[in-house]
Design a protein around this nucleic acid. Sequence first.
DNA 1: GTACTTTTACTCGGATACCGTCTGTCCGAGTAATTATGG
DNA 2: CCATAATTACTCGGACAGACGGTATCCGAGTAAAAGTAC
Lengths: 159, 159
Amino acid sequence: MQMKTSVEQAIYAVAILALLPEKAVLPGDAISEQLKTSPSYSQKLLRRLVREGLIHSVPGAKGGFKLMRKPEEITIYDIYIAMEGHQAFYTPSGIFDDLLEAEEDYDCLLVSFMDEAEVAWKAVLKKQTIAKLVTELEQSKFQERVQKIKQIMAERMVM
Amino acid sequence: MQMKTSVEQAIYAVAILALLPEKAVLPGDAISEQLKTSPSYSQKLLRRLVREGLIHSVPGAKGGFKLMRKPEEITIYDIYIAMEGHQAFYTPSGIFDDLLEAEEDYDCLLVSFMDEAEVAWKAVLKKQTIAKLVTELEQSKFQERVQKIKQIMAERMVM
DNA sequence: GTACTTTTACTCGGATACCGTCTGTCCGAGTAATTATGG
DNA sequence: CCATAATTACTCGGACAGACGGTATCCGAGTAAAAGTAC
């Protein structure tokens, strides 16, 4: 029951893109440089975010990535789903059926409240947006560093 | 972000033990027989439940397992923790530090509400007890089958 | 019939093999801007 | 100076290697009850 590290990485990648001025585009390398993560793997994750409709990509020279929607409209939940998919935490393995010798349609008792728990979990993730995250960052003790990052990005981005 | 199947298996194993009369002891093989799971692996899970203090074991001939507490006092959460441990869904990998060049004590912004989400999830699991689960089973359309299981268990158990 | 030994039926816990998934790398292909080239 | 070709700087997507963790098996050791044995 461990969240994939790719989710975390994706969140910060999106956060970086949220620091850019609208319409600006940033190459994947610039992102992995800041995150100090492997460029090839970051690219992979970025491509997935594209496929899932969270970010937009521009191929070719002067190309790169940018947010598809406004930071206020991107939740942590969105990013989680993009990276991990819609599969539920718990999927009945069939033990229930085996134990009770259920052949037909049944309702595995665990599913109902496992789902309830998962919904409760997701509800919290849905509350948090990238915009909030960025705002908190900009008001934290790291605000100087955030400005620095914006500067560095400004050198690499294309309007 | 998939729950281990061992948690599910453990839940049903405990549920079976909850069907026994108090003080009765049931050998591990009888449990795996009903669950139609591999005996060796089930034994392993049962041993873990013992180690975590959820069930009690009696070695030697006429030995076996029985619940440590009453079914009303065993929650699904307890079993989950026994099988998966206390590790949080999300543990900061250090990207946050790398990005913000934080050296000292920091508070990774994600941790706070990832924890909040996890707490919400666990709260639901804590509400559900084995007693409830068993009661629901006994009142479901599987009640006959449940009685049958009790019978079969009666042949194998030792008071 | 009692004391002792053997067998039987369990749990215990570690070692180990297997296998799927996630992380991470690589490469050829596509695309667009920039630069170089030729007339 | 303009049109075209070559280069450059990106994304795209799949293939693949490696590491790790969970599933599953096995085995020798410990323990206690039952059965067998000797006197």
